[in-house]
Amino acid sequence: MDSGKLRRVALTAGLLFCLAAAAGCLLFQTAQEEFEEKTEMMEALTGIDPAHEAEYAGIITGKALGEEASETEEGEALLEKYGYTFEDSIGNSGLWRYVGGLAAILAVGLVAAGAASWYFFKKKEKEKDRAEYLQERLLETQNRSEKMEARLRREEQETKALITDISHQLKTPIASLKMSYEIEDSTELSEEERAEFIRKEREDVARMENLLQAFTQMTRLETGMICLQQEKSSLKETLKQAVGSIYMKALKKGIRIETEEFPELMIPHDPKWTAEAFGNVLDNAVKYAPAGSRVRIQVSEMVSFVMVEIEDEGPGIPEKERGKIFQRFYRGEQKNVQETEGSGVGLYLTRQILERQKGTVFVKPGRNGGSKFVMTLPKE
């Protein structure tokens, strides 16, 4: 038996004991009053007529012997003659007080039992609600733990993949440098050959510097070390900054950067990182487009967003690769792409930067066989 049932049994037993005790007290009180009443009556009668003391005692105590029915009837007739009936004797007795007292005690007991039952019912409901609340909190804690564990596993896998990708990207320039140094140390080279080796070594070092810089930016952005600071700034100035970052590369290849005129637009964005996102797309356009071609920039204002389109005249992107080029370290399967210097991080950063500002980016075929990158940013 649990503690709740024990408490209820003890309460019921206590109430019954109280009722029995109260009933006994009332019975004793009634008997005491009746005895005192008969005593006073006996004293009064013997004071009036001492000669009939024994007869009075028998009548009052009810222990008189030899009474006849006729005498009893005569006594009743005499009492009725003076207005005293059996109903009056009932009304004058202490029985009604006894019954009324018992009824009152019973009513109090029932009320007390009801109150106790209500109290224990509410307490049980409260305990049930508390148990349900604790169960919900436990489930929430378990869900958070599972989510945290899943996130830690995902981060661990991403970290392993990142280390593997970085190692793979750095492997080629490091191997090239190592081979170059070994050849220089073990072979007699002419001045022209030595100069060529030095030029190649500088290219490899520059490539590693670019890779490390891209890895650093990507890691800082992914780990939250860099928070985008959105503010209402000029989109035109941001695009100028992006074009300026690749202008010299375009000039060396004779590629023209053409921007269609558009009105001044002040939209919420991070100018520095948004310029980097646009610059990465422009850098790819200049890198893979043939010399003497054009790169067009078009800005369109929509109802709730601004669209920036960058179109080149390069080799284009196969349809099966258009969803992959925004993945980290993906460089495509085309031969000219594989032979061109790159890390496969630029477009990945572009997608991250725009999406963190509630923007989008996708690519579709250009009008002249190249690619058109379509980027959007919300106006509010």
Results as ranks from 00 to 15, higher is better:
residue 2 D to T: 12
residue 7 R to A: 13
residue 11 L to D: 11
residue 14 G to L: 14
residue 19 L to I: 15
residue 20 A to H: 00
residue 27 L to H: 13
residue 33 E to F: 04
residue 34 E to M: 13
residue 37 E to M: 08
residue 40 E to Q: 11
residue 55 E to T: 11
residue 57 A to D: 04
residue 57 A to T: 07
residue 58 G to I: 02
residue 59 I to D: 01
residue 61 T to C: 03
residue 64 A to Q: 13
residue 66 G to E: 12
residue 71 E to K: 10
residue 73 E to N: 10
residue 74 E to G: 08
residue 82 Y to G: 06
residue 82 Y to K: 04
residue 83 G to A: 12
residue 84 Y to S: 12
residue 86 F to T: 12
residue 88 D to L: 15
residue 98 Y to T: 11
residue 106 L to D: 08
residue 111 V to C: 12
residue 112 A to T: 12
residue 116 A to V: 07
residue 116 A to T: 05
residue 118 W to P: 06
residue 119 Y to A: 12
residue 130 R to A: 12
residue 134 L to W: 06
residue 136 E to I: 07
residue 145 S to F: 03
residue 146 E to D: 05
residue 156 E to I: 07
residue 166 I to Q: 13
residue 167 S to T: 15
residue 168 H to D: 09
residue 174 I to A: 12
residue 177 L to E: 05
residue 184 E to F: 14
residue 186 S to I: 07
residue 190 S to K: 11
residue 194 R to W: 00
residue 204 D to F: 10
residue 206 A to N: 14
residue 207 R to Y: 06
residue 209 E to V: 03
residue 211 L to E: 01
residue 214 A to Y: 03
residue 215 F to G: 00
residue 221 L to G: 00
residue 226 I to L: 12
residue 227 C to I: 06
residue 229 Q to Y: 10
residue 231 E to K: 15
residue 236 K to S: 10
residue 237 E to T: 01
residue 238 T to Q: 00
residue 240 K to N: 03
residue 246 I to M: 00
residue 251 L to R: 10
residue 253 K to L: 05
residue 253 K to Q: 06
residue 256 R to S: 08
residue 257 I to D: 02
residue 259 T to C: 02
residue 260 E to F: 08
residue 263 P to V: 07
residue 264 E to S: 09
residue 268 P to Y: 04
residue 268 P to R: 00
residue 273 W to Y: 12
residue 275 A to E: 01
residue 276 E to Y: 01
residue 279 G to E: 01
residue 281 V to I: 11
residue 283 D to Y: 09
residue 289 A to P: 00
residue 296 R to E: 07
residue 302 M to N: 15
residue 304 S to Y: 09
residue 308 V to G: 01
residue 320 K to N: 15
residue 324 K to Y: 11
residue 328 R to D: 14
residue 340 T to D: 06
residue 343 S to F: 09
residue 347 L to E: 02
residue 349 L to E: 06
residue 352 Q to R: 15
residue 353 I to V: 14
residue 356 R to E: 11
residue 363 V to H: 00
residue 365 P to V: 08
residue 371 S to P: 07
residue 376 T to R: 02
residue 379 K to H: 02
